[in-house]
Each structure stands twice: as structure tokens, then as C-alpha cells.
């Protein structure tokens, strides 16, 4: 220890750089081994989340980068084995997160609560929660400001759900070009 203390400042920097390089090499090697599993896990996680609002999901296309708006965590085009028309789902919300499913024409099919403050919701599963979230079904993405009635006993915050659905509608409007149609009609 005494001997190493007598060496200059450059030596200390060189040792720190060498340890950093070793740590990076180790992390890169482990990442090479782990990345196929991480990718597969992420894929399974998305599929199981999308399955909350759509049945028969066989795949998805991530459109978040192209059409995501502020407050949107993810936007997917959903692919099902039977084909048929396009379907979309949007994950959004801040402290409380929701997934909103849309038909190809922009009509909401289902809304589910995912988490609140990073904690998986046991909330969002009660009959009152389901009744509250069912109010969004059938609303069109180009509707002016979505509103719902509060349901007594619901553990889902109605205003958080409305905020999330409005964000999801903005993203789907941008995706389907409904904003453009509206302004042309005006």
C-alpha cells in the first residue's frame, strides 16, 4: 500500500481507467449473454399487457416513436391471428397508468388500469372499477374532451382515468389522421 501511494497522480488515473475498462468489458459480456432473454421478456410483457384489452393477440407493431404524444408511454398496432381490421392500444398516464384499446376506426373498445404510483393495482379489479372504466367503451377518439361519471366504491381515480384516455385519444387522432379531417371539415 505504501509503495502504491508513492506513485504519481497519473498512476492513480491509469488504475481507475483500467478498472473502469474491466467493469465495462464485464458488463458488455454479460449484456451479450442476457440481451436475447431481456428482449424476449420485454416482448412477452407487452403481449400480456395488450391481452388485457384485446383477445387473440399474435403480435404487435410499436408505433410509439412515430405517433406517441406527450404523456404516452407506448402506442401499438395490434396484430391478431385471424387478420381483420387494424386495432390499436395506447399505454398512458403518469402516477396511475392505463391501457386503452381502440378499433381501427378510432372507437374505444376497453380501458384497464395497470398501476398506481408504480405499484401493481389490486385496485382496478373491483366491480366498481370495471363499471367506471366501462363508461369509456364506444367513445370515439375524435370526441371533444371525454367525460365520465364517478362510481362509488371505485379504487381507480376517475380524473386520472379521464386524463389518460384523453391523452390516448390525442395519440390515436394523430395516428389515424383524424385531426387533419376535423380541420378540413372546419
Amino acid at each position: 500500500m505504501q509503495k502504491s501511494n508513492e506513485r504519481g497522480a497519473f498512476y492513480g488515473i491509469a488504475v481507475t481507467a483500467a478498472i473502469t475498462a474491466l467493469a465495462v468489458i464485464l458488463a458488455v459480456l454479460v449484456n451479450l449473454a442476457a440481451s436475447p432473454f431481456i428482449k424476449r421478456n420485454a416482448d412477452e410483457s407487452v403481449r400480456s399487457t395488450v391481452a388485457l384489452v384485446f383477445d387473440g393477440v399474435t403480435g404487435y407493431e410499436d408505433l410509439t416513436e412515430d405517433f406517441g404524444v406527450d404523456g404516452t408511454s407506448a402506442l401499438y398496432r395490434v396484430i391478431s391471428g385471424t387478420g381483420g381490421e387494424d386495432r390499436y392500444c395506447v399505454i398512458c398516464g403518469n402516477d396511475a397508468r392505463f391501457i386503452v384499446g381502440f378499433r381501427g376506426d378510432g372507437i374505444i373498445t376497453a380501458v384497464r388500469a395497470l398501476s398506481a404510483d408504480g405499484v401493481q393495482l389490486k385496485a382496478g379489479q373491483t366491480d366498481a372499477d370495471k363499471e367506471l372504466l366501462a363508461q369509456f367503451g364506444g367513445i370515439s377518439a375524435d370526441a371533444e374532451g371525454v367525460h365520465i361519471k364517478n362510481v362509488s366504491g371505485a379504487t381507480v381515480d376517475a380524473s386520472a382515468a379521464v386524463g389518460a384516455v384523453n391523452t390516448a385519444c390525442s395519440a390515436v387522432r394523430a395516428l389515424l389522421g383524424l385531426d387533419g379531417e376535423a380541420s378540413e371539415e372546419e
Partner: peptide, 21 residues
Amino acid sequence: GLIPDSARVPAYLITAAGFVT
């Protein structure tokens, strides 16, 4: 034997951070 006193804190932190990663 290789880590000098002046570099011990960054060396310890980087090593721990590498293994945590």
C-alpha cells in the same frame, strides 16, 4: 497492491457499480 490511496474511492465505487450492473 495496485490501487493507490488517491484513487481508492473511485476504484471501489466503479467495481461495485460494475457488479451491480
